[in-house]
Simulated scan of single mutants.
Amino acid sequence: MAETLLRVENLTKTFGGLAAVKDLSFEVKKGLITALIGPNGSGKTTTFNMISGHLKPSSGAIYFEKIRIDKLPPFKIARLGIARTFQNLEIFGHLSVIENVLLAIQNRRPVKFWEIVTRAPSFFKKEKEAQNIAFSYLKPLGLENWALSPAQSLPFGLQRYLEIARALALEPKMLLLDEAASGLDASEKELLLKIISNLKKQGVTILLVEHDMNMVMEIADEVIVLDQGQKIAQGTPREIQRHPDVIAVYLGEG
């Protein structure tokens, strides 16, 4: 049985009198693809924001590799091995494509201040190594020919891929993908499926929020369904498709 990588316990997040997430518990197994689905407003992105440290839970706890992370800032959570993309693109548009990825690499492989000031040989060696690593993330996503272009000049689909490349440059153990297929055409979604499948083969655990049910049912090992901030079902894609509560939420009681 796969080892638990992430554990969410009785997680609740309230905004004023509204509970966006209520008493939510689930586990994400190492090396698997887990999908978090549900209607708009069901608490999916709020859950992502709490896992990545961008929101603090009102109550409950989150453990990553048995380390409690719900009180940590985002940069410390990222250094533990959790990277994410965002539903609304979060790239540095005025920087080049490769500079976006280099920022993430430098977070994991920092250059010492004295190396920069003295322009030491080690600085140029690390700079060259970082560029080579950046290209290794850009190439599988078809971004190598855009490396020197401003990120904002990329077509929308490639901007999505750039955000994934930057997240991967953090060398994560777990990748959170928030609506990664949103705005992509059929061919772009097909490439995204291949990317996610390859990441799984490389041992990256993936938790994704996604509205494209065809994609979810094709790629996910396990599916967690939320409605009004609460978990109503969890299981394999086949089990979820037949679950009466899920059918009621998506298709109506009739």
Rank of each mutant, 00 (worst) to 15 (best):
G53D: 00
N88F: 07
S136D: 08
E99R: 07
P110W: 12
G41W: 10
F75K: 09
Y63A: 03
L55M: 14
P57N: 13
A61Y: 10
R84K: 11
V117C: 07
F86P: 00
K76C: 04
E99A: 09
F75R: 06
E115I: 05
K56N: 14
R119K: 14
R109S: 11
K44M: 08
G43H: 04
G43M: 05
F113H: 13
E99T: 06
P110I: 12
I67A: 10
T118S: 14
I82A: 02
A104L: 11
K76W: 02
S96R: 06
F113Q: 15
A78C: 15
G43L: 05
K128C: 07
S59Q: 15
H54S: 07
T47A: 05
F124M: 08
Y63T: 05
A120T: 15
F75G: 01
A134H: 01
T47D: 08
A120C: 10
G93H: 13
R84N: 02
P57G: 10
Q87Y: 09
L102Y: 05
R84A: 01
T45C: 09
A83N: 07
F75P: 04
T118M: 14
H54F: 15
I116K: 14
E127W: 09
R109C: 07
I69V: 10
K66E: 15
F48M: 06
I62D: 00
G41F: 11
F64R: 00
F48T: 01
I51C: 06
A78H: 03
S59G: 14
F64A: 03
T46C: 05
K56I: 12
K56T: 15
Q106I: 03
L103M: 15
F113D: 13
D70R: 04
R108S: 08
M50C: 10
Q87A: 07
S96N: 05
G81W: 01
R68Q: 15
N132C: 09
T45I: 11
R84D: 01
A61G: 10
F64W: 04
F64Y: 06
F48N: 00
G41Q: 10
S42T: 12
F135N: 03
Q131C: 03
P74N: 06
R84E: 02
F113N: 14
I37N: 01
G43I: 07
I77L: 06
I69Q: 00
G41I: 12
D70M: 09
E65L: 11
L89C: 08
F64K: 00
K71W: 09
A61D: 13
I116S: 07
E127A: 14
R119D: 08
V111R: 09
F124N: 05
T85D: 04
H94I: 10
T46Q: 08
A78I: 04
A134P: 00
I69E: 00
G53I: 01
A130C: 08
F75T: 05
S122R: 15
K128P: 01
Y137W: 05
I133R: 11
L55K: 12
S96W: 04
G93D: 13
N88Q: 12
L89H: 04
K128Y: 04
